[in-house]
Structure formats: C-alpha cells, structure tokens
Design a protein around this nucleic acid. Structure first.
Lengths: 235, 235
DNA sequence: ACATGAAAATGATCAGATCACTTGGTCATT
DNA sequence: AATGACCAAGTGATCTGATCATTTTCATGT
C-alpha cells in the first residue's frame, strides 16, 4: 500500500538515491567495499525491487556504485567526487579534441606549479613509477599502453598538487576518450622526447621549482598541441 | 583488470543505453526535444519496460535525457558534454569547499585572459546581462538569487573564451553546491564590491586586455578565498 | 589437501497490472 | 466569443512476482 502520509514532493527515486548514498556515507564505506543486496535494499526502504534498481542505475552512471552480476552491489570509485568526465561522452570531433588540448594547456601548467609547492609525497612516488613504466613500455614497443601511462603521469602530477578538486578536473580532461587522443599522439612519434619532458617536469616538481614546473608543463602541452594542429592541417 | 581491448562482453543495458543515444543522434534531436515513450522504446528494442527504464535512468543521471512524469522522455541538456559536475555530490566539507575555491582561483584567471583574446560576442552580451541582473538584485535585496547570478557571470566569462571544454570545467566547479558556497559568500557582505570587481573584469575582457582580465579575476577570487579562510578560522 | 560439484546468494530480465501526472479537448457557463 | 470546470487518452512511476544467469560458498569425495 502506498498510504503516503508524507509531504515529500521529490520523486521516490530521488529520495531513494540520496538515502542510499547517505547509507554508504553513514557506514563509512570506501570504494570497493560491498554495499548491500538489491532485495535487501528494497525491503529496507519498503519499495519494490525495480525501483531500487532504477535508483542504483542512476548511482552507477556516475560511478558511485557498481553492480556485479552474481556477486553484489559495491561502492564505486567516484563516490564523493565533485567533477567527473561524462561517462557517456561520444567520440569528440577534431575541433573538440583541439579544444580539449587547449583546455589542458591552460589548466595543467599552474597545477604543476602548485604541485611543486605542495609536493604530496605519495603522488611524487607515483609519478616516478609512471616514468619507469613509460620507459619500459617504450623499450617493449607497447604504444597503446604507453599512451595510457603517459596520461597517468599527468594525473599523478595533478594529485601532487594536494588539491583533490584539481586532480578531478585534470583527470576528467585526460580520461576523456584517451583513445582518440592517442590516435593523434601516435603521430607525435618522438616518444623518447615526451618521456624526457615528463622527467624534466618531475625533476622541477621534486625540487620545488614552481616556475620551472609551470614553464615545462606549458611547453610540453603546447608542443603536443602544435603537432596536432599541424597534423590536422595536413592530413 | 580493465578489458584490454578485444572482446567486450557488454551487458544488455550497455547496448540499450548506447543504442538510445545513437537513436537520439541519428534523429538529430536537440536538448529539449521529445524523445520517445518508454513503452515504445521497449517494443522497438524488443526488451521489457523495466530494462528500458534502467537504461534511461543511466542516461538521465548525466543529463543526457529527462523523464517527465505524465509527459514523456526528452533530450537532456548535457548530451554531448565531456566534463560535468557530479550530480550526486553531497554537501562538501569546509576543507573541500576551500579546495574548490582554490581550484577556481587557479583555473579561472587564465580562462579570463583567453576570454579577453577571444571575446565571443554572445557570451559578452550575456555577461552584461548578468551584471545588470546582479545590480537589480542588490537593490531588491534578493541575496540568494544574487549569488546565483554572480555564478552565472563566471560561467558566462568562461563561455567568452570560446572553448566549450573550458566552459564545461568552469561550469562544473561553479555549479557544485552553489548553496554551500552562498552560505559563506553571504559573510563576505560587500556585495557592491563584488559587483564592481565583476564589472572591472568585464571591461577588461571587453577591451581585450588579457593581462588585466587575468589579474582582476585572480584578485577577485583570491579575495573571496581570503574571506572564507578567515571565516573558517574564526567561526 | 585438493578438486569437484551441488546449493545458495545475488544480479538481470521479463511479464503484466495499477497508480499518478500531464495534456488536450469537450462542454457548460458567462 | 471567452472563460473555466471537467473528462479522457497518453505516458511515466511503482508494484508484484516470477524466471534466468553468474558468482560465491561449502560440503563432499578422492
């Protein structure tokens, strides 16, 4: 029976979604932790199973939860994030891709400068790991994987700033259709130069030279951008 | 391990969601257009209604579609966006809020500089409208609405850069829990000074003075940040 | 100790029905 | 003719209950 004695105007689904998020927060569940069975949630909130599932799908869309067939509902990696990449984004047009790189060239240099001031240790170590991994991948010739790791370096750099929001922003603009970016970055060709530039940025950040870190990051991204622009004009 | 290329075991839901997006693109539907009835979609894709609804909820979560009770399914405003604010973000902690402002103080000044170079006309006019609206709201004393319009100004400023991705980023960091930011911004008190600063930024952008636009925007946001920091230390 | 396989837990999907809201048109009143 | 009350069709929201598919657990046999 739906003897709604309440006053709530928001749809049942809105309440459900927020209630479940609150439940996750209340239990202090971290990404990866198992949440609760669908049927159990239905009983807990006194709603039908399909309704719970719709609410879960909503949460799942932004990475707040994950539904694993036969296993259960788990807390997703994006719970608590403020900014994220649109998981439903279609492949960007060349124009949009240039725009995206321009945005990165504008945002990441000052982030690198901040990273040189903050120098969050865990992130610095991750940057070093990324560099090592990139070196190996250059040797092994796995270019697809290399491009991924190169993106990882940029994300780790943002993490080193100590500002989670900035890290989310950078992650959002780097994760977006990495593959498309790679297609073009393959043209760049000089993977060793890329690695050297990354290493120089790392050194600048590690030594706390904010101005240098900013400059190197700007030159690095402008360089990539120049290559892409040139490539788009001469296809 | 993430699926390293090759075979992708997409669930029925993944196919449904992407198929529906493709259908929207195929029909060249724009945000606000009516899409198709749930029952009709179920029949079209030969699946049950609850399944369609789950897929729609996924799309709805990122603003790709909207479900209006009794009316129909419509194309949402965020279809095609790359970066967006997490629609399920909870109220940020004070620390997170400071971080958010720091991120804005880092990102928006160079965006303002770019805006001064590009000067997208429609966005410039929108900035002027925002300023007028703000002036009226200061007179009428509607502070809640004023704070909204002030955020609109920052978004319009980003639009003027001509870079949609940057605009999305700025929109994402300004739309996030505006209310919480307002709570604190109310402390600022000097709403007239805020408006004056916005006007100065507008003038700098309008006249194409990139350096000045960047400087003024930085001072403006640093000022807000300083107030907030002070406020958090003396509650 | 190990491998096997049944059983339980859990998500995925289906089918049909009923309730609630929106919209557009009908029709009486003015 | 303009207005407003009312009704009916279309559509989303939610429920009930069942069946299929996958994962996990654990008793069992070797």
């Amino acid at each position: 029976m739906s003897a709604t004695g309440g006053v709530v105007r928001r749809s049942l689904l809105d309440d459900l979604a927020t209630s479940m998020l609150a439940l996750i927060a209340e239990r202090k569940l971290a990404p990866g932790d198992q949440f609760e069975a669908v049927r159990s949630l239905a009983e807990r909130f006194k709603v039908a199973v399909p309704t719970v599932r719709e609410a879960l799908r909503r949460l799942e869309a932004t990475g707040a939860v994950e539904l694993r067939h036969g296993s259960g509902v788990y807390v997703g990696p994006n719970v608590g994030r403020l900014v994220l990449a649109n998981p439903l984004a279609l492949a960007p047009s060349p124009d949009r891709l240039v725009e995206l790189l321009q945005a990165r060239a504008l945002i990441e240099p000052p982030v690198a400068a901040l990273a040189a001031q903050t120098r969050a240790e865990v992130a610095l170590e991750q940057m070093a790991k990324d560099l090592d991994a990139a070196a190996e991948l250059i040797a092994s010739g796995d270019h697809a994987q290399l491009a991924e790791v190169n993106m990882d370096f940029h994300r780790s750099l943002a993490q080193a700033s100590g500002n989670a929001t900035l890290a989310e922003v950078v992650e959002s603009v780097t994760v977006v259709n990495v593959r498309e970016q790679l297609e073009i970055l393959h043209i760049h060709g000089d993977r060793q130069a890329d690695l050297d530039e990354h290493r120089a940025i790392y050194d600048a950040v590690r030594s706390g030279d904010a101005d240098l870190a900013e400059l190197l990051t700007r030159e690095h991204l402008d360089g990539v951008l120049a290559v892409i622009n040139e490539r788009l004009q001469h296809p």
